[in-house]
Simulated scan of single mutants.
Amino acid sequence: MTDEEVLHEFRDAGALLEGHFLLSSGRHSTHYLQCARVLMNPERADRLARALAQKLPLELRAQIDAVVSPAMGGLIIGHEMGRALNKDAMFLERPTGTFELRRGFRLPEGARVLMVEDVVTTGLSSREAIAAVAREGGEVIAEAALVDRSNGTVDLGVPFYPLIDINFPTYDENELPAALAATPVTKPGSRS
């Protein structure tokens, strides 16, 4: 899938939003990609996951034992990546603020894990999720995401394979352009 084809999927789903958004990273943006909305259609979610799976080198795909994703954002794309790769897919939750496997999910000691996210901006959630997999006995050998919003700067400590790089500018709270600061802010993400 080309970048334009991926963006077409977001536009068709009404999932490319414009306004003033507070991202889960704490940064502000004039654009928001609502991955839950683009993934609500099973056929579209399947297409995007298969395109993302194709971004992974064949030798990496052969090493993956399981797919793990952080809840909430990574749930759907993580499940679809599990299907695309024919691997079990599980998710991490934060019932007390720290990611952990629950609901009977377990990783065998040394399991090689593909971490799957919807959007990566600063990589904070990804690094927290990668640390949680290590605590659970697994090893994250790579991460895949629908969208990289880091402008190619994120360092997750593992190889990173995004379906698309989106370079919509993001701003720290104290560096907001005047027009953006004057626009009411919306926090559409899943993290409080």
Rank of each mutant, 00 (worst) to 15 (best):
R50C: 14
L52W: 00
Q54D: 15
P57E: 09
P57I: 03
L58M: 12
L60W: 10
R61C: 12
R61M: 13
I64D: 07
I64W: 13
D65G: 03
V67H: 14
S69Q: 12
P70K: 09
P70T: 06
P70Q: 13
P70M: 11
A71E: 05
A71V: 04
M72D: 02
M72V: 05
G73I: 05
G74E: 14
G74H: 13
L75M: 15
L75G: 05
I77F: 01
H79T: 02
H79R: 03
M81R: 01
G82M: 12
G82P: 10
A84I: 07
L85Y: 00
K87Y: 12
K87C: 13
A89M: 06
M90K: 00
M90S: 02
F91N: 03
L92E: 09
E93Q: 13
E93K: 12
R94D: 11
P95A: 15
T96H: 14
T96N: 08
G97V: 12
F99H: 08
E100F: 10
L101C: 06
L101I: 12
L101P: 11
L101H: 15
R102K: 14
R102D: 01
R102A: 14
R103S: 03
R103A: 14
R103G: 02
G104C: 05
F105Q: 04
L107W: 13
P108R: 14
P108A: 15
P108V: 06
E109L: 10
G110R: 02
A111C: 04
V113H: 05
V113E: 01
L114H: 05
M115T: 01
D118A: 11
V119L: 07
V119T: 12
T121Y: 07
T122M: 04
L124E: 11
L124N: 11
S125Y: 04
S126Q: 06
S126M: 02
R127H: 06
R127C: 07
A129M: 01
A132Q: 10
V133M: 11
V133P: 08
R135V: 11
R135I: 13
R135L: 15
G137W: 15
G138E: 07
I141V: 14
A142N: 07
A142R: 02
E143P: 00
E143I: 07
A145Y: 00
V147L: 07
D148T: 09
D148H: 10
R149P: 02
S150W: 02
S150Y: 01
S150R: 02
S150M: 13
G152Y: 04
T153G: 14
T153D: 14
T153V: 10
V154Q: 04
D155P: 04
L156T: 13
L156F: 09
G157H: 06
G157L: 08
G157D: 13
V158A: 14
V158E: 10
P159L: 13
P159F: 15
P159Q: 14
F160V: 00
P162G: 04
P162F: 01
L163I: 05
L163M: 11
L163K: 06
I164S: 00
D165F: 04
I166M: 13
I166C: 11
N167F: 10
N167R: 14
N167C: 14
P169V: 02
T170G: 00
T170Q: 00
T170V: 06
Y171E: 09
D172K: 09
D172H: 09
D172G: 09
E173A: 15
N174I: 08
E175R: 06
L176C: 09
L176F: 15
P177T: 05
A178W: 12
L180Y: 09
A181W: 03
T183E: 09
P184Y: 03
P184F: 07
P184M: 01
